[in-house]
Simulated assay, not measured.
Amino acid sequence: MLMSWLKQLSSSWQQKRLQRPELASMFAPPTAGQWVAIDCEMTGLNPRKHHLLSVAAIHVNGNTIDTGNGLHLVCRPPVMPDRNTIVIHGLRTADVEHGMSYDEMLAILLPFIDNRPIVGFCPQIDTAFLNPLVKHYMGTTLPNQVIDVRELYSRRMGNPDHSAPNPSQHLTKILAHYHIPELGTHDAYNDAVMTAMAFLHVR
């Protein structure tokens, strides 16, 4: 009861700080059976010194992944990716230098997310990069519930320790456990699709 009241209070406080009225529906209670799987590619894992490169988002409706209407948005970071990180995410300067600004990306991404709970694999990393940009854009951080597929899988396996030193390998483990085909990791859209497929098995 207390937790529910605190969540409502936090949501109300966030909504009062909203600077873009067209996004007010993000604060509405989510519709049952609707989620959005997201994945981001960055130049590194430290939001204080690294930058967002691309974001993918896909709707999950009931037991269906709506891959035909997903988003894959490439952004133009303030600092171009270097040789050491290109081998990980595959995004070169030529791929991102004509990408969207962060505001342009959010103008498309946020209405797509709307009030759906966000599903991700270690989504705390993704939201750590997104939230400062979102707050600058609309005055508040993402109000959505965030669901970590890794934690759901750990509970399903009876393991209270959610730590995973290598998140990519751990996602591979979940995919293998449920015989889910790998689409190629470190591509935001592929990772979002695989995360959505894993979510349908562990939710």
Rank of each mutant, 00 (worst) to 15 (best):
M80S: 07
G99K: 02
R83M: 15
I118Q: 07
D114L: 08
A94S: 14
F129H: 05
A164W: 09
I125Y: 13
N144D: 08
T43N: 02
P78L: 11
P77T: 08
T93G: 12
K49A: 11
P111I: 06
L109G: 04
R83S: 15
V60E: 05
E151C: 15
C75P: 09
M105D: 05
M80G: 04
M100R: 10
Q145S: 15
R150H: 15
V55G: 01
R116D: 09
G120I: 06
I58K: 02
G139F: 03
I86Q: 10
Q124V: 13
N46M: 05
D148Y: 02
E97I: 12
I113S: 07
I147D: 01
H59D: 09
L109M: 06
R48S: 15
P143N: 08
V146R: 10
D82Q: 07
A94G: 03
N61P: 12
L106N: 01
N84P: 10
L45K: 02
R83N: 14
V96G: 08
L130V: 03
N84T: 14
N144K: 02
A107S: 14
C122K: 13
S163I: 12
N69R: 13
S101A: 01
V87Q: 14
V119N: 03
V134L: 04
T64R: 15
L53I: 05
I65T: 07
E97M: 14
P78N: 12
M42L: 06
L130N: 07
V96R: 01
G120H: 01
L53N: 00
G99E: 00
H51D: 11
P123M: 07
T43K: 00
H162L: 13
H59C: 11
R76L: 09
R48T: 11
M80W: 08
T140H: 06
Y153V: 01
N46W: 04
T93D: 15
H72L: 14
H59M: 07
A107L: 10
P47I: 02
S101K: 03
A128I: 03
L91P: 00
D114S: 12
P160I: 10
K135A: 14
S54N: 06
D148L: 05
I58L: 10
M100T: 11
A128D: 09
Y153C: 09
V55I: 12
G44Q: 03
E97P: 11
L152G: 10
C40H: 03
H89Y: 02
D161F: 09
T43R: 01
T64E: 15
H72V: 10
T64M: 14
P78M: 11
R92P: 07
N115T: 04
P132S: 01
P81A: 06
L52V: 05
P81D: 00
S154V: 12
R156F: 13
D39S: 11
D39G: 08
V74R: 09
F121Y: 13
T140Y: 01
V87M: 14
M42T: 10
A164K: 12
G90K: 04
C40F: 09
K49M: 13
N46Y: 07
N84Y: 15
D66K: 13
I113T: 04
Y137S: 01
D103F: 11
A128Q: 09
T140Q: 09
I118P: 04
L142V: 04
R76A: 10
F112W: 07
V74S: 08
L106P: 01
A57R: 07
V96M: 06
G68H: 00
G44M: 00
G70A: 12
